[in-house]
Design a binder for these strands. Sequence first.
DNA 1: ACCTGAACACCGTTCAAGT
DNA 2: ACCTGAACACCGTTCAAGT
Lengths: 245, 245
Amino acid sequence: MSGTEKTEKTKKMKNPVTGGKPGTAGRPVGRPRRLDPEVMVATARRIVEEEGVAALSMRRVAKELGSTPMALYHYVRDKDELLMLTLSGTAAAFPRPELPEDPRERLVAVAAHMHDIIGRIPWVLDILALGELTDRNALWMVEEIIDCALACGLSPARSVRAYRTIWSYVYGDLVFRRAAARRAENPSRREFFPEMVTGKDRAELPRLAEIKDRWREYAADYETVEELDAIVDGLLRRGTRGAKG
Amino acid sequence: MSGTEKTEKTKKMKNPVTGGKPGTAGRPVGRPRRLDPEVMVATARRIVEEEGVAALSMRRVAKELGSTPMALYHYVRDKDELLMLTLSGTAAAFPRPELPEDPRERLVAVAAHMHDIIGRIPWVLDILALGELTDRNALWMVEEIIDCALACGLSPARSVRAYRTIWSYVYGDLVFRRAAARRAENPSRREFFPEMVTGKDRAELPRLAEIKDRWREYAADYETVEELDAIVDGLLRRGTRGAKG
DNA sequence: ACCTGAACACCGTTCAAGT
DNA sequence: ACCTGAACACCGTTCAAGT
């Protein structure tokens, strides 16, 4: 909008990471590779798995590969692209679980499974925030959710939207679970909500003043699957009544 | 868990930013301030509003104040704390809207309003990801949601959980809206889902293969308020039936 | 009590050049 | 085609010292 944005780059590349490797078919042209892009992604992935997204840097990956930072830019446009590539193959590590036959139950079970596996690898949240679904091995979950929604009587359009709603909820829930885990690890911080509510707030915030001492206790009983069940309930009721969508 | 975590700091401070100012009551002790902590937070806030969270640095704030980076550490423990403080006062800029009387409608309207105001200041998402509600001016929305949930027949415990579910959804939705906006601004990226689904996937991903060309069209019609309405529907039905909670 | 200065150990990315 | 090296313009935080 303004003049302060990043200048747009229009360099085109032919997906050198997933694209055909020289040596497999046709003879390699030009200088032989020193840096294997698959190894580059694997290295980035290991760093991110072991030390978190914050530990990943172009310089670090280059150093571990005995290469230079700029060599990586031959295979990715920028750091975000490398980050997104580290996601590919992640879901493959988690076996496909047994799922109930009933489509409604199955829908909740798949959503719960998504929640579960991402909860075990919280570093992916920062990458998923980029809004791209880059891992083919995760597509079966999307397929299942759409299939179940259709089987429950939703239109294709409503099924896609129901998927997005469920995914937004799952994502948000995981972000706040991670935040809570970090707070528990690193407890010496200022106290905000609900501690910030005091007796003086009784006039303006009567419910919060009343409930604040039990807030954390109630929140501790939070069960994502129960909430998912309620959300799916709402989405299916809405989708199978009206004419629209 | 392991030995690689940050070492824990136990320095205690008496909230020097929001705490009593010298000159107001009692005489100031020790060296007079050169750096006003409120100005420090205001400066950080301006940077973040104008240029985004990525543009905020301790060094930058110090420079704009004609101070040194380390001076800031007298008032905040680390950068995250400064970031959280920039949130305070944000909600005050948005007037409290007219709300419907009916508690169910009112609940949806407040949730939609939360979604709306945060959507106008997307930089807060990165700070809200820290999981703390630091802005007293936003508490009225939590109060309203809890009040409406109680009025709709939910128990206090279920009301708190309903609030968390709604908030997780709103947060997740906003993250993906921001991601979509960024993609639209900076379109030259690799293509992932749904483009990555091809005719070859028809056997394993029949629904996705069928729907993929219309996926973006369906997603474009997504209306958060409609989805919120459905979610609230599910949460209220669940909460007002069973005995538990 | 409040602040400075130097230092440590890093960043992403551009650009021109080399093989 | 693929990679290097130097440079630019930065980071958060620790530590010891100064007023």
